[in-house]
Design a protein around this nucleic acid. Sequence first.
RNA 1: GUGGGCGUAGCUCAACGGGCAGAGCGCCUGUCUGUGGAACAGGUGGUUGAGGGUUCAAGUCCCUUCGCCCACCCCA
Length: 428
Amino acid sequence: MAKSKIIQPVKGTRDYYPELMAVRKWLYEVAALVSSAFGYQEYEGPLIESLELYAAKSGDELVKEQSFVFEDRGGNLITLRPELTPTLARMVAQQQNQLTFPLRWWSFGPFWRYERPQKGRTREFFQWNIDLIGSDSPTADAELVAIVASFFQAVGLSPDEAQILVNNRYLMEGELAEIGIQDESFKDIFRLIDRRDKLAPLKWRDYAKDLGLTLQQIDQLEELLRNDDLWQKSPALQGLFPAVESLGVGGYVRFAPYIIRGLDYYTGTVFEAQAIKGDVRRAILGGGRYDNLLSDVGGNQIPAVGFAMGDLVITLVLEELDLIPTDIKTPAASILVTVFNEDSLQESLTLSKELREAGLKVACYPQADKLGKQLKYADKTGVKIALLLGPDEIAAQKVTLKELSSGNQETIPRAESANKLKRMLDLD
RNA sequence: GUGGGCGUAGCUCAACGGGCAGAGCGCCUGUCUGUGGAACAGGUGGUUGAGGGUUCAAGUCCCUUCGCCCACCCCA
């Protein structure tokens, strides 16, 4: 180990060995399935963007400190994308007169954030993004919430294992105004609300005092955050909850006045999904309405709603609940053609080719090792059927099929082997 | 950015208050020259993350450094 000079991977990255790649691919496939079931189209943007795109809205200190930024040869500041929404806003704004709204788009790709790695957080990660652009209806919000719920159903998360918590920023702004908080303080107070779960109650009150709230206001604020019926004062939420019920996923969804989300660009309804079983405390995903972002990047004002789900936290949650299927591992070839000796090597290659042409997944052992070693290899790599092609078989235009699981084998005419193999594999 | 834990064979980990670096699994070979899983026998395998220091003697103690993990901070 010490003598070898293996270059270390970049901090915070992960190597996707086949086992891990299988999980990522599975998440992608479930996301794709759910997205397309709701009529969404897949798209992708560049992995690098100019820094300005994010400086516009995401909160600039964070962008500068937590993004990978580098200078290109022309002196421009380039950013490895830390999120997709600004890219989406740009792409839509660029073609706003040609696109037919509402748009339903989804994407699944890599993102980078320069953070200190820890459990459930790496510097390079994958994220599912899905957005509905061009509708300001609460029904659109409900649709995104229902998509989250459908995803949970698809991966086997029940309503008592994961919940979608919904709130509305306009509602909260109105309530804050009623207890005498000024508009310019909303941002600070939202941050305060966002930290309610993260600080001890007394510390939280201290923090509130530091922001200039009176004791009475703090009490009123705490009262607000406990009020489960508050949503009835929000037209957007009054529209959302019945729609969610009609979409059949009401069990997953709950009003939560303390859900605010950190992003500056959210406007009305916001939501977040959390695991309620197990030890994972971090949000699984977050989303909401961002009606001003398209105009912020220079387009028309187009209402939009969407969410993003990283691959890390959801994987932790699913692992903890033992919900990751075991049969997703990328299968090795289902068939291995063995090589009897140097003289028969070419014949084995030709047989592999014939079977591939018939649509089978076939690997050919690359050299004439001892047959036992080749079968051992077949066994360890998950091959289902090994093919033996020795002098006897070649002379008789036959081939021996050995099923690894049972050890049974039979010798049949080579011309019939492809069909026979297909039948054997279909039975699995 | 702050605090804590940990780096020993390909993998998982041992090795008392310093005293010849070990085990299991894996891998290779043989028992078994046309047949995998099992068993048995043998074998390969390490500058103990790196660099320096203390000591007759360092995996062990001290300093530096890199990396991983956990928590804090932050979270688009």
